[in-house]
Amino acid sequence: MASSATTHRHSQTRRESPREWRRFKFPESLYRWAGVLLGLVFLSYSIIYLNIPLERFFTMFGRVGALITDRYYPPEIDYVTQPEYLASVWETIQMAYLGGMFGMAMAIPLGWFGSYNMTPHRRFVYPLARFVTMSTRSVHETIWAILFVTILGFGMMAGVLALTMFCIGFAGKLFAEEIEAIDMGPVEAIRATGASELSVMVYAVFPQVRVAFTGIGIYTWDVAFRAATVVGFFGAGGMGWYLKRNVLQIETLRVSAILVSIVVLVLIAEGISAWARARVAKAK
């Protein structure tokens, strides 16, 4: 059908002018233009609705440049090399590590329960596990941080729990997808030996997903670290707290130094994570 329409269109193209040629795609073109028009209307409506000052937008680049050179440059590097700040960096790393560990410990069973092929119960456990991963994932890590700070008070416990929630959602979904992609042959074979479902997981599923899980775990930790740099902004411990304090005190040179330190740390974390993942992938 589609190919005959195409040839038909081509034969017409040769004979007639380009303006006429468009008419032969009539129904689709109408939808397409309607779609584009709708998009444009939504776009301009959004810009008006959100009160976005376009004139400011176009002069913005100069202003941002000026702002950076005037107020944020040079970053006060001394501030971020003092022991107190470095201690908070270490705390951030620990928070991310713990959050990653706890999150992973919960994400693995959730991944199992939330994978359609391996879940112990498709009508009850599966949707429940899916719902838990979905909701932990949907709530942003900063919201988790704020909630835990409100309930538990300032400190790293709130941060660790917030990152745990984040990791549960992040890794749980990826784990479930990984389990859904396994070869079911060995699963059947192990089931056929009379093994319990736990044994089936350990012998038939886990060996198949181990490498992928390790990679996902490292990646999750890397992303959690990124999040860990900011949960402190809402009182949940780590370097984010310094960011908040200096933002509030308009210590812009210190803020830029902190930002630089965050970028450097995240780049290092990402480097390590990429290296470790490449190694794991090679080890198979």
């Binding site: 030996t193 009379g194 093994a195 736990l198 044994s199 350990v202 012998y203 038939a204």
Partner: peptide, 13 residues
């Protein structure tokens, strides 16, 4: 793994 039907969960794990 052919013995899995005979052993307990801890042994298997």
């Amino acid at each position: 793994s052919g013995r899995l039907g005979y052993v307990g969960n801890i042994t298997a794990l």
